[in-house]
Amino acid sequence: MNIFVLMKRTFDTEEKITINNGKINEEGAEFIINPYDEYAIEEAIQVRDKHGGEVTVVTVGSEEAEKELRTALAMGCDKAVLINIEDDVEEQDQYTTAKVLAEYLKDKNPDLILAGNVAIDGGSGQVGPRVAELLGIPYVTTITKLDIADGGKVTVVRDVEGDEEVIETSLPLLVTAQQGLNEPRYPSLPGIMKAKKKPLDELELDDLDLDEDDVEAKTKTIEVFLPPKREAGKILQGEIADQVKELVGLLRSEAKVV
């Protein structure tokens, strides 16, 4: 089976966000594989181990993303591809990213593509469905279970705001991973050693037969700002029963939320 994982490098969830010159400050920040993409990688590896084939992990990003690609290879992916469009594209949005990914994938005959359901930084959840639609294949988002029968029939369980949908579909298919899909493995030491020798290809826009105009962003960020800092409020004092009465009073008369 020809399996692809779309992977994004993101800020570590532990990071506080600061702004410098109107931009998110990346100086000194730790980066990780987008947590939902870890589920996608784990599932891809499990599907390959069961059905055979090969897993290629693909990212659109800068050279720094090599580190996360190597981690994915160490987990067990077979090949990695870095599509570096930094020098070619100034403004990038989900339209751009999806077009670049779809252009790369279109002649690769993917059977299964896995993505995260959302990137914890950009947070739009657009890239997976966009890529599927550009390729003309079906997709199912926020999945928590994936079963592929011999013959290509696929049964998927999808999380829908807490309820579950059981969906029948077929390959080729794109799915996006929700928490609960699996328990991503940590790279093992032998895995890390092997990863160093696995192929990691780097492509640019030219290699994909795309011009800057083809992928020009349709939206533009004009400002980035931090939410107003929350001040620590009032810690109530006294007997618990009195505190509870006081709290209810405050929620009613001061905060006016009940």
Partner: peptide, 21 residues
Amino acid sequence: IVFTRPIYSGKAFEKKIVTDG
């Protein structure tokens, strides 16, 4: 028309405009 949306899961916000289409 300016749209505000959270990024970094609400740790920050961005303002966006649609430039084409």
